[in-house]
């Protein structure tokens, strides 16, 4: 989207707020609406916005696919790890009360860690889905563009012909890009 300067500037302004809002949803989920799942989706959407506006190549440089793959597994691992930790400390699986001296503080810590695990996995899977579906560059993309361009041009010409004459096309609107 090299000619969409306005879009790029707006996305650049918006992006930090989206990521910040995701963190707010993640860590404020104890007090207001939200939690790990929503935060993960919002964070992933922020990265996807970056990929859409600045290109998948740039996004891959910022968030490498390998890291995404690792993060997806790490989230589940963190969640299960909290459960195993409470098991090792002598309580039931996922019984967070044992994680700290005070059961309420333990519960709070457990919920925080578990939500973090959920957020991590969801963020990673959302980005992973986007990479998987949209990540193929090269021949396939060129073909898709050619298909679309051909269809659109033919339709536009038909539309002009319908009105009886191509002279009204006037200034070359398409060259502004």
């Amino acid at each position: 989207m090299q000619h969409h300067t306005v879009l790029k500037v707006a996305a650049k302004l918006l992006l930090p707020f989206i990521l910040l809002f995701a963190l707010y949803v993640q860590f404020h989920g104890d007090f207001g609406p939200g939690g790990g799942f929503q935060a993960g989706v919002i964070f992933g959407a922020g990265i996807i916005l970056y990929a859409l506006v600045f290109g998948t190549g740039h996004a891959r440089a910022v968030v490498p696919p390998g890291a995404v793959r690792a993060a997806a597994a790490l989230g589940v691992l963190l969640y299960t790890g909290v459960g195993v930790a409470s098991l090792l400390l002598g309580a039931n699986f996922l019984d967070y009360g044992i994680l700290a001296a005070d059961p309420v503080a333990g519960q709070h810590l457990g919920i925080l860690l578990v939500e973090l695990g959920v957020g991590l996995t969801v963020t990673a899977v959302m980005i992973l889905l986007f990479y998987a579906f949209a990540g193929v560059e090269g021949a396939e993309t060129d073909r898709a563009v050619a298909n679309r361009d051909g269809a659109e041009r033919a339709a536009a010409e038909r539309a002009v012909a319908d009105r009886g004459g191509a002279s009204r096309a006037g200034p070359d609107w398409t060259s502004t890009s």
């Binding site: 659109e152 339709a155 536009a156 539309a159 002009v160 009204r168 096309a169 609107w173 398409t174």
Partner: peptide, 12 residues
């Protein structure tokens, strides 16, 4: 996408 600005005719 070559939507004609004068007539607003569809591109497809």
């Amino acid at each position: 996408g070559r939507l004609d600005p004068l007539s607003g005719r569809p591109p497809e």
